[in-house]
């Protein structure tokens, strides 16, 4: 663990997370949050020290609270688009860097709950479900490409997010029907978009999954359908057969 934590790749991500947190705090300061701008730094730094995966979530929650409460008490009134964009890019980069750091040092793949249910016979111990490797990325496997991807994501997604927000804002401002509040219309719009995307994606991938079923899977599915359709009569038939056999055994007609 210590070696992993001190490896160059981990050090780079740690440093990047720190820089992102600092940029985040500066942006908040610039937004007019004054000393409150340092608030998200506390869970961020603590989770970097303790290697906790909850750090980014706490930072996001605190940002939500700052903006939510700040608007009521007159904090964060600056409306600089550039500054907000920087804040969002820093937030996204920090989230990615922190969890990448955890993938290198603590856990990249979650543990499988079925491992706990593996048979406990001594001769089977360690044979299956007992993954012997630590579930982390090898620190030697990092490369420059992933940094490039991160930079690209940090610059592209805030722009896309801005586009999305502008569309949503325009729709809320112009297309709100009579008698429906602006907020409710915005929420409905968001719900429709999210649910539509999720539903469409699920349908598409389910279709693709059925399309790419292997021969074994398809045969098993058909067998299962047949069983579902005829389960009742089959159950009675098989139970009668078994009962007859047991009776024959009792009478000594079968060994």
């Amino acid at each position: 663990m210590r070696e992993r934590y001190q490896a160059p790749a981990a050090r780079d991500y740690r440093l990047a997370s720190l820089v992102c947190l600092c940029v985040l705090a500066l942006s908040l300061w610039h937004e007019g949050f004054e000393a409150w701008a340092l608030l998200p730094l506390i869970p961020g730094l603590l989770s970097l020290l303790l290697l906790s995966s909850a750090g980014p979530i706490f930072v996001l929650v605190l940002l939500g609270l700052l903006y939510g409460i700040g608007s009521r008490v007159g904090l964060g009134t600056s409306e600089s688009w550039w500054n907000s964009g920087l804040l969002i890019a820093a937030c996204l980069s920090y989230t990615a860097c922190h969890w990448r750091l955890l993938s290198l040092t603590k856990q990249a793949v979650p543990s499988d709950p079925r491992w706990a249910k593996a048979p406990a016979h001594p001769h089977l111990k360690g044979r299956w479900f007992q993954r012997e490797q630590a579930s982390v990325r090898s620190v030697q496997q990092t490369n420059a490409g992933e940094w490039l991807v991160l930079l690209l994501q940090a610059s592209l997604f805030p722009l896309l997010g801005l586009g999305g927000w502008l569309v949503l804002d325009t729709e809320m401002s112009l297309g709100t029907p009579q008698g429906v509040s602006l907020r409710l219309w915005g929420l409905l719009w968001l719900a429709w978009v999210v649910l539509g995307l999720l539903g469409g994606g699920y349908a598409l991938f389910t279709l693709l999954r059925w399309y790419h079923l292997s021969r074994d899977e398809a045969e098993l599915f058909l067998q299962d359908e047949l069983w579902s359709a005829t389960r009742g009569p089959q159950r009675r038939i098989q139970a009668t057969i078994v009962q007859q056999r047991y009776h024959a055994e009792k009478r000594g007609e079968r060994p």
């Binding site: 996001l60 940002l63 903006y67 907000s84 907020r183």
Partner: peptide, 19 residues
């Protein structure tokens, strides 16, 4: 939260993370 409170930055941040 951004939509309810009409806080553009929050909505923007949320949409960015969702995307």
């Amino acid at each position: 939260l951004g939509l309810v409170l009409r806080q553009g930055v929050l909505a923007w941040l949320g949409l960015t993370l969702l995307l």
